[in-house]
Design a protein around this nucleic acid. Structure first.
Length: 563
RNA sequence: GACCAGUUAGCUCAGUUGGUAGAGCAUCUCCCUUUUAAGGAGAGGGUCCAGGGUUCGAGCCCCUGACUGGUCACCA
C-alpha cells in the first residue's frame, strides 16, 4: 500500500502517542453530558461540560489555541490554553500531545467550562482532554468565510464512494438524510394513527410479481430452486387483505435489474398500502392528506422547491382523467376510438409507434409524450386504459378503463393507486392476456402467472384500494435533489478499479532480468520487447519500487536486480 | 446503448505554441496566550486515470480502454 506523506506522518504520531503511554484507541466509555447544540442553546458562563467529537479546525497561536469540535449536532469552538491544561511544571500535554500529535479528524473528549471570547464566540475552555480515536487519513475538510465555501468536497464519485467522508465534512448532506428519516417516520405515524398495520413480506420470491421489470435472480441451495429478489410486494400485501387485515402497509426495498441513471438505482424503496372497503376515490383523498402531512413534518411547510419550480403539497390536488388530459394537450379524444384510429393519431403527433403496441400502450405513449411533463403541481391522473393495468379493477362506468390514478409532480410519477382487482376470474384472464402480450414481444408485460395469488383471490378479497409511493422520488422532491444518488446513503457504483502492484511493463522487464540478475540496459530493453515509452515507464517504476538499480559505468548503463 | 465533458499534490483547481509540473488550503519546522478561511518566516510533497502512437522531446497532439458526471434512449 502506497501511503501519502500525510498518512505516514500520522502513523508516526500514533507511535509517539503510544510511547508516551497514550492509547490512541481507548476502550472505556467517555462520559459525554452535552452536545454542541445544547451548549449553544443553553449557554451559561462557567458551566462545566463534557463533550466529545471530531477536531475539524485547529488554530494554534503559541501558548493558546482554538479548535472546532464537531459532534452529531454541529460544531462548537474549544479553547486550549497551555496553563489551563497543564497546571504544573510539565507542559507536555499541551506542547507535545495537543500541538504536535493531534490532527484534524481526530476524535477528542473534552472536559471544560464555558466562556465567551472577545469576539463573542461561545467557547469551551478546555481543562482536560483525551484522545478518543486517531484519524490516519486526512479528511477533505472545506473552509468557510462569509458564507462562501472554499475547497468544498464536491466530486460526486468520491462523495458517493466515501459517503462516510461526505457526511463528516458536508453538513448539508447529512441534513438530506435526516429529512429522509423524518419522512419515513411521518408516513408511518400517519398510517398508524389511521389504524393501519405495518407488515413485512418476502424479499426472496419464487415468482417476481406485482410489476413488470427484470428481476435479480438467485438460487436457494437446499431447495434447489431459483428465487427472485422482489420487484414489488403488491401481491403479498393483497394476500394479507384476503387474510383479514383491514389495512396493511410496508416500506419495501425493491430490486430491479435495469438501467441506472439519476432517477434509477437497482435497489430502491417503495411504500405500499392496501385498505379494504375503500376505492381509488377515497385513496386520492387519503393520498393528498398524507403528502401534506409529510411535507409539513419534513420541511415545516407544505411548500417545496424543486429546481426552478415551487410545488405546493397542500391538499386538495387537481384531478383529471387521462382522456381529458390528452384532449386538453393534443385536441384528440381517445373515447370510443379503435386501436388503428389511435395509432394513426399518434403517428400524426410524430410519436414513435409500432404494430406490436396495443390500444393501452398507444394511449400511454401519447400521454407520456404530450401530457405528463405539463403537470408541475401535484395532479391526479385517473382512469388508465385496462391493458396497462393488469392488477386494477375495471372502471365502474367504462369497461375499457380501470379505476387507477397516478400522482404526478414535476412531470414525474410519485404515486400509483388502484381500486384493486378482486375478481379472481377476471384476474386470471388479465394474467393470461399479459402472457400473450409478453409472447408477442411486449417487454413490459408480465410473463409469470402467480397461481397461489389467484388461489388467494378465489377465497375472496374484500373491495380494496391500494397505493404505492416511490419514497426515493418523494424525498428528492422534498429536499430539492435532482439525483437519486443524493438521497441514498450508498448508491450503487461500479466497483473501484484495483491498483495493481506492478504494471505489465514492469513485469515484462522483471521477467527478463530475473535470469541474469544484472544486465546491460540496452540489451535488457531490447529483450523486454517494450516500446520506448513502455520501457521508460517500466524501468522508472521498478527503480521507484526499489526492485532494480541502474548504475553507470564508463561506457554503458547496467541494470541490477535488488533484493 | 448513443453523444458530450471530466480525470494533474491529501482537498479545490491552474497549466500558454509540445521544451525542468504550479497556486490556495492541508502537511512539516520555527515565532505567536481570546483567534476564527487567524497571522508571519521557511520546507517537503506528483504513477499528470491506464495502455499504445507521433516526436529529439508529450500533462498538452492522435488512437484504444477504464471510471465519473451530464444529455438522450430504455425503465409501470
Amino acid at each position: 500500500m502506497q501511503l501519502s506523506e500525510q498518512e505516514l506522518v500520522r502513523r508516526q504520531k500514533l507511535e509517539k502517542l503510544r510511547a508516551l503511554g497514550i492509547n490512541p484507541y481507548p476502550a472505556d466509555l467517555f462520559p459525554v453530558n452535552h452536545t454542541s447544540k445544547q451548549i449553544k442553546s443553553n449557554f451559561e458562563d462557567d458551566k462545566q461540560v463534557i463533550i466529545a467529537g471530531r477536531l475539524m479546525a485547529i488554530n494554534i497561536q503559541g501558548k493558546a489555541s482554538f479548535a472546532q469540535l464537531q459532534d452529531s449536532e454541529g460544531r462548537i469552538q474549544v479553547y486550549f490554553n497551555r496553563d489551563e491544561i497543564c497546571t504544573g511544571e510539565d507542559k507536555s500535554m499541551y506542547n507535545d500531545v495537543f500541538k504536535k500529535l493531534l490532527d484534524l479528524g481526530d476524535f477528542v473528549g473534552i472536559e471544560g467550562t464555558l466562556f465567551t471570547t472577545q469576539v463573542g464566540e461561545k467557547t469551551v475552555m478546555v481543562k482536560n482532554f483525551k484522545l478518543l480515536s486517531k484519524a490516519l487519513k486526512p479528511l477533505p475538510i472545506p473552509k468557510q468565510k462569509d458564507g462562501v465555501t472554499y475547497d468544498a468536497f464536491t466530486d460526486p464519485e468520491q462523495r458517493y464512494r466515501q459517503r462516510y467522508a461526505d457526511l463528516a465534512v458536508n453538513p448539508h448532506v447529512k441534513e438530506v438524510f435526516v429529512k429522509r428519516t423524518k419522512l419515513f417516520n411521518a408516513m408511518r405515524q400517519f398510517f398508524n394513527d389511521s389504524g393501519y398495520f405495518e407488515v413485512e413480506t418476502p424479499i426472496l420470491q419464487p415468482i417476481p410479481g406485482g410489476a413488470a421489470a427484470r428481476p435479480f435472480i438467485t438460487h436457494h441451495n437446499s431447495l434447489d430452486i431459483p428465487l427472485y429478489m422482489r420487484i414489488a410486494n403488491e401481491l403479498y400485501l393483497k394476500r394479507l387483505i384476503v387474510g383479514g387485515f383491514d389495512g396493511v402497509y410496508e416500506f419495501s426495498k425493491n430490486f430491479r435489474n435495469e438501467g441506472m441513471d439519476r432517477t434509477h438505482n437497482p435497489e430502491f424503496t417503495a411504500m405500499e398500502i392496501y385498505v379494504s372497503y375503500k376505492d381509488y376515490n377515497w385513496m386520492m383523498d387519503f393520498c393528498e392528506q398524507l403528502l401534506e402531512h409529510c411535507a409539513l413534518a419534513v420541511n415545516g411547510t407544505s411548500e417545496a422547491t424543486f429546481g426552478e419550480h415551487n410545488i405546493s403539497f397542500k391538499a386538495p390536488y387537481k384531478r383529471i382523467t387521462m382522456r381529458d388530459s390528452i384532449l386538453e394537450f393534443t385536441g384528440f379524444d381517445i373515447y370510443n376510438k379503435s386501436e388503428d384510429e389511435i395509432r394513426a393519431a399518434a403517428k400524426g403527433m410524430h410519436i414513435e409507434v409500432d404494430e406490436t403496441m396495443g390500444k393501452g400502450k398507444l394511449i400511454d405513449e401519447i400521454f407520456g409524450e404530450k401530457c405528463e411533463s405539463n403537470y408541475i403541481q401535484p395532479t391526479f391522473i385517473t382512469d388508465y386504459p385496462k391493458e396497462m393495468s393488469p392488477l386494477c379493477k375495471e372502471h365502474r362506468k367504462n369497461p375499457e378503463l380501470t379505476e387507477r390514478f397516478e400522482l404526478m409532480v414535476c412531470g414525474k410519477e410519485i404515486a400509483n393507486a388502484y381500486s384493486e382487482l378482486n375478481d379472481p376470474i377476471d384476474q386470471r384472464e388479465r394474467f393470461e392476456h399479459q402472457l400473450k402480450l409478453a409472447q408477442k414481444g411486449d417487454d413490459e408485460a408480465t410473463e409469470f402467472i402467480d397461481h397461489d395469488f389467484l388461489r388467494a383471490l378465489e377465497y375472496g378479497m374484500p373491495p380494496t384500494s391500494g397505493m404505492g409511493i416511490g419514497m426515493d422520488r418523494l424525498i428528492m422532491f422534498l429536499t430539492n435533489n435532482q439525483s437519486i444518488q443524493e438521497v441514498l446513503f450508498f448508491p450503487q457504483m461500479r466497483p473501484e478499479k484495483k491498483k495493481v502492484d506492478l504494471s505489465d511493463n514492469e513485469k515484462a522487464i522483471l521477467e527478463v532480468l530475473k535470469s541474469q540478475k544484472r544486465m546491460d540496459l540496452t540489451v535488457l530493453k531490447s529483450q523486454s520487447g517494450l516500446s520506448n515509452k513502455g520501457w521508460d515507464k517500466g524501468i522508472k517504476g521498478l527503480t521507484k519500487h526499489g526492485l532494480t538499480k541502474v548504475t553507470k559505468t564508463e561506457d554503458s548503463l547496467i541494470v541490477e536486480l535488488q533484493d
